[in-house]
Design a protein around this nucleic acid. Structure first.
Lengths: 213, 213
DNA sequence: GGTAGTTCTAAACGAACGTTTGATTTGTGG
DNA sequence: CCACAAATCAAACGTTCGTTTAGAACTACC
């Protein structure tokens, strides 16, 4: 027996999640259920059976990766806030880091696939995305906005809010650009940055952007 | 006669481009040809007739808006470089502005629709997007990379390249967030920024990010 | 006023999609 | 060994999709 399925031993639901994550990242959420089940060595009907629908599979896939990341973001921000004297502001670099590191850190990283799906969904108009994003990210952004606001008390809320959007955009784009052949790169760029340098660049870039003016 | 089509008088090809731009922006490029032709008050076959295919319509739609924007970007960068003494570096704010203003400036702006399509395509995996983006943006990024490189001569190319990606990500996201109900906004944010303030914020944010370290 | 070329129209085509169905297999506790 | 539930399976369903087709309508020009 050569290799029965690509990922044998795991239960079917897990194999479907793994296969869908890889295929959605490579070719978008328009990949057919037939292709997913073929890659997972499962029956066509198994998606409906285990997740109710293709959307159900997508949501389960997202929550599997996103919940731990967002928990880590909040925990890291708590740690940084506990490390400064009461009433003092957390350095902007630390707030940005708390937001960025759990998504980029190779140590606890779900791999390059997941964030490509996030970027794809974020710019997409799938009906499932809007409600899902609100539900998952609303408490997170509220928490980070108050921290940023404490660190930049004189910045009008509308401007702070826009800068938070810029942080999200830069983060999503950085993650995607690292693993996507999309953008026109200089072809002779022989030494791409390792993930640690990318994280440093992103933190410093956005912290400087937040602090300007 | 109440209002024969939504946009009468224009030739069919233009009506198709207009309708497709609006629908693609609102609901993504998966909007059906049937819906586009219905909105343009045209026959189903008119897309194939005038543009060869749905992809042809999309590419024509993109070039109609993108070519003028990219020409304006290069012209603006030329102007800023001509305004400094020979050998001197252009301020980072001006390089960023040359990249950002033609896409955001309400004066010459194609409206909110187009940039949402760009964001959507950028994160999508449609086969048409990759080659199209390379073709359209390669000379542009080469030009801007040399300007940035002249302004930051000590920055390693890999880091400069990443920061350029962060600029693109922040720009795309800022444009999208302004006109999309996607992200979880604070609900009580009664006074959104006008486009001029958004452009200022984006320029200052990214210039500071480029300059850091 | 006919005629050639462009544009429009209604209808149909074949393919691909997500989901459902009903039977069959598998696994487990009595 | 049997019964019962969970899981898998092949097959089909109905819908929607982009594109094609053949002919009608319109335009401009000689």
């Amino acid at each position: 027996m050569p290799t029965p399925p690509p990922t044998a031993g795991e239960p079917t639901a897990e194999r479907l999640l793994d296969a869908a994550e890889q295929l959605f990242a490579q070719r978008g959420t328009s990949v057919s259920v037939r292709e997913i089940t073929a890659a997972a060595d499962a029956n066509l009907a198994s998606v409906s059976y285990h997740f109710g629908s293709k959307d159900g599979l997508l949501q389960a896939l997202l929550r599997r990766r996103l919940d731990p990341i967002n928990e880590a973001r909040l925990a890291l921000l708590d740690r940084f806030e506990a490390a400064v004297p009461p009433g003092a502001a957390v350095p902007l670099e630390r707030i940005v880091e708390a937001f960025v590191r759990p998504a980029l850190d190779p140590a606890a990283n779900p791999g390059p696939h997941f964030m490509q799906i996030m970027a794809h969904l974020h710019a997409s108009h799938e009906p499932v995305a809007a409600e899902f994003f609100r539900e998952v990210f609303e408490p997170l952004v509220d928490r980070f906005l108050t921290s940023f606001s404490a660190a930049l008390p004189d910045l009008p809320p509308a401007r702070l809010h826009l800068r938070m959007h810029l942080l999200v955009g830069a983060t999503v784009h950085a993650l995607m650009a690292q693993h996507s052949p999309k953008c026109p790169l200089p072809k002779d760029l022989a030494s791409p940055l390792d993930p640690t340098d990318v994280l440093d660049e992103l933190v410093e870039f956005c912290a400087a952007g937040f602090r300007h003016g």
